[in-house]
Design a protein around this nucleic acid. Structure first.
Lengths: 233, 233
DNA sequence: AGTCCATGTTGACATCGTTAACTTCCCCGG
DNA sequence: CCGGGGAAGTTAACGATGTCAACATGGACT
């Protein structure tokens, strides 16, 4: 009953409900188009008029589904977060997973980290959109107050995966004593910062091999900072 | 003899050179105004027309001194970086500095980190501007090719301070063996990422005491990851 | 059959970045 | 001393964007 997917009250349109005037699934179509814009050139490329243009609809039609272009951007953000989490999920599932339990717990942190960075570098525009500042989502009546309770409702699933991983490390007894609390933020900060410095910042011109080494070094530092023993490369 | 400060070829104006028509120091005035805009609301608030308006000059006058608004933004970026480095410098200088040599080397990393974060939280808009993506500085004749050699000419002094600190740690023998290379990027990534998550991202709503704890935890993790022995809180 | 309202449309406005063409004023050589 | 030339500023205009107000359409439900 939230405002998530196209679930308008009385409306037959769901599959072929397009009558050349009433699109039938405009909201999703717009989010789709806007997402492609972000994928191409980041959040600043998410321009409402262009998204509408691509869907073949007038610009103002978008205002039937979004309060703002900020609101549209917010939708793109959510999609970006989802794609990030999905990508990481696939990466983790396709992992070897052998060896002893303790090593596995450590390895999982590595995999999570590498999966995170891999997605960001593969989809720079979308990643930047997923973490961009969204100016101000003006609240419309149908936009029932932003979900403030529940901390973050389903978005930031990538963060949840990180939390689970760290819990697993603690359970396996590989974690340095007393560092569990807040470790998720430390780890997240490191990979997010690394990605941002590479994407927008001063590390953008690093030659690829150096870049990859830096990535491993950064993740390695975090792992070393959180675990009891130093880890092999 | 680069394009840094107001050093126009044949021009008397330097102090009182304002004749109501020829401003005399427009470039600096514009950078100043633009910097204030950024300080207030971040890089997206750096709008060329508004900066010109505040200086009391027509919008197009800015194009005598900047190729683009991107160019203007770039100038703000440089200023932001300088303010960051200055702030960190002051913080480091006002440090106790007692105790044994090894502990001092470790402490300095803490101070650098905290100083970095402190500035970012005190000047969020300017910090975001200092690390924002700048679209494309169209090159004008008087804008003699961007400095690509010398890696980064004087900007990112904060980074240089970090490098010196890490060198000091290695010299003092407190650094975990084999981790020196790339350590600057790992450390930078952690604090930068932390700041971005707090400023623009999902950590923005953290209550202040929790936030401060997270900051210490993040820096602590990096320090632990780079040094031989665990460190006191 | 008739009506209501969600959904789209057209038209207009303010703001922004940017270019073109014109104006001022100061420096420098004759 | 004076007159030209160019640096530095100005006004006018264009295209693009976000957004609002007023109008059109057509499916769903009485």
């Amino acid at each position: 009953m939230l405002s998530t997917s196209g679930m308008m009250s009385t409306m037959s349109a769901s599959k072929g409900g397009r009558s050349a005037y009433h699109h039938g699934d405009l909201r999703n179509a717009l989010v789709e188009a806007a997402t492609e814009l972000a994928r191409g050139d980041g959040p600043e490329a998410v321009v409402l008029r262009e998204a509408a243009r691509r869907v073949g609809v007038s610009a103002t039609a978008a205002y039937r589904h979004f309060a703002n272009q900020a609101d549209l951007l917010q939708a793109v953000k959510v999609r970006g977060q989802r794609e990030l989490a999905d990508s990481m999920q696939r990466g983790v599932e396709a992992a070897p997973g052998g060896g002893d339990k303790q090593q596995a717990a450590r390895d999982r942190l590595w995999q999570i980290g590498r999966g995170y960075v891999r997605f960001a570098l593969a989809e720079p525009g979308l990643y930047r959109a997923a973490f961009c500042r969204v100016p101000h989502v003006s609240d419309h009546p149908w936009d029932e107050g932003q979900p403030d309770a529940a901390e973050h409702g389903e978005e930031y699933r990538s963060f949840d995966m990180l939390v689970e991983t760290l819990d697993g490390m603690e359970a396996a007894g590989v974690m340095r004593p007393g560092v569990r609390e807040g470790a998720e933020f430390a780890a997240w900060s490191a990979v997010h910062g690394l990605v941002m410095l590479i994407l927008d910042g001063p590390l953008s011109r690093l030659p690829e091999p150096v870049r990859d080494a830096v990535i491993d070094r950064t993740i390695g530092t975090v792992v070393a900072g959180l675990t009891r023993e130093p880890v092999r490369s």
